[in-house]
Structures are given as C-alpha cells and as structure tokens.
Amino acid sequence: MFIRLTPDIAVAAQIAPEDCAAAAAQGYVAIISNRPDDEVPGQPSAAKIGAAAAEAGLRFAHIPVGPAGIDEADIAAMAAELAAGGPVLAYCRSGTRSTNLWALAAASRGGDADAIVAAAAAGGYDVSGMAPFLRSLAARA
C-alpha cells in the first residue's frame, strides 16, 4: 500500500484516516497530502486526514497539486517538509503527483537526478522525462 522510494519517503494512493495509525506503526513521522480536497466525491478531506495524523502523533501538511500542476511554491513547501525529517508518507490519487513533487523537491535540495529517477522507477513511477529539469534544479541548490 505504501511504496517506499527512499528511506525517507514513501508514496501512496488516497489513504483513509485509519491508515494514519498504520503509517505511525510503520515508523513514518509525517503525512503529506498532495491531493486537492473534493477532487472526487467521497474522498476524505485533508482536514480529516490531518486530524487522524495528529491523533497518531504524526506531522501533517497539505500541499495540493491540482490541474494547474506543480509550481515553485509547491516544490519549496515539499522540500521544507522533507527537511523537517522523515520518513514521510505522501499521497495523492495514485501516488504519481506525490512522486513527481518529491522528485522536484529532492532535486531542489541538491539531490542527484539519476538517483532520483532510479528511486522513482524502483517504485513503479517514471520521472525520467524530468531528468534535465531535475539536474537543473540540483545545480542551483
């Protein structure tokens, strides 16, 4: 259910409030929602997941990535959450947006683009098309 990309980050499809306790039991210290509220009817709100995360003793951040895509503020917010310490669980509808945002944030913190691409691929996500931009971000760090 949780796909570990590195020792510090895992991604998942939409989680339920009860998954927060499972995440804590597995050693995660934070949950990041990359899904906008009301993307589909019936999904748990970020507030509901955040409350369950707090109850489980986890940090929680809501960095929604919608149809407009990822912007610099999203990358900076994700990078700050990653810098606060992990392991972190990030979720969206399928895990793809969370993986893409993690890749960009990791590169913005000076991460090696090839290692980022390989970690995503090992988790079943293809971010290879972003490799030139990841290198550019890493070079600016």
Rank of each mutant, 00 (worst) to 15 (best):
F2T: 08
I3C: 08
I3H: 12
I3W: 01
R4L: 07
R4V: 08
D8Q: 15
I9K: 06
I9W: 13
A10V: 03
A12W: 07
A13S: 15
Q14P: 03
E18A: 11
A21N: 00
A22S: 11
A25P: 02
Q26L: 06
G27I: 02
I31H: 01
I32W: 02
N34C: 12
R35K: 14
D37P: 05
D37F: 09
P41N: 10
P41H: 13
P41C: 12
Q43N: 07
P44F: 09
A47Y: 04
G50I: 01
G50T: 02
A52Q: 07
A52P: 08
R59C: 07
F60Y: 14
H62Q: 11
I63S: 02
P64S: 14
G66W: 03
G66T: 10
P67Y: 10
P67G: 15
P67I: 14
A68Q: 13
G69N: 02
G69Q: 04
I70P: 00
D71V: 06
A73F: 04
D74A: 15
A76C: 05
A77K: 10
A77T: 14
M78Y: 11
E81P: 05
L82C: 08
A83Y: 01
G85Y: 14
G85M: 09
P87W: 05
V88E: 02
L89C: 09
A90W: 01
Y91M: 10
R93L: 09
R93S: 08
S94V: 09
G95T: 14
S98C: 15
S98V: 11
T99C: 10
L101F: 04
W102M: 04
A105I: 09
A105G: 07
A107H: 03
S108A: 15
S108L: 06
S108F: 03
G110K: 10
A113R: 02
A113L: 06
D114T: 15
A115N: 13
A115L: 06
I116G: 02
A118D: 14
A118Y: 01
A120S: 14
A122M: 07
A122S: 13
G124Y: 12
D126A: 11
S128L: 11
A131Q: 15
L134I: 07
S136C: 04
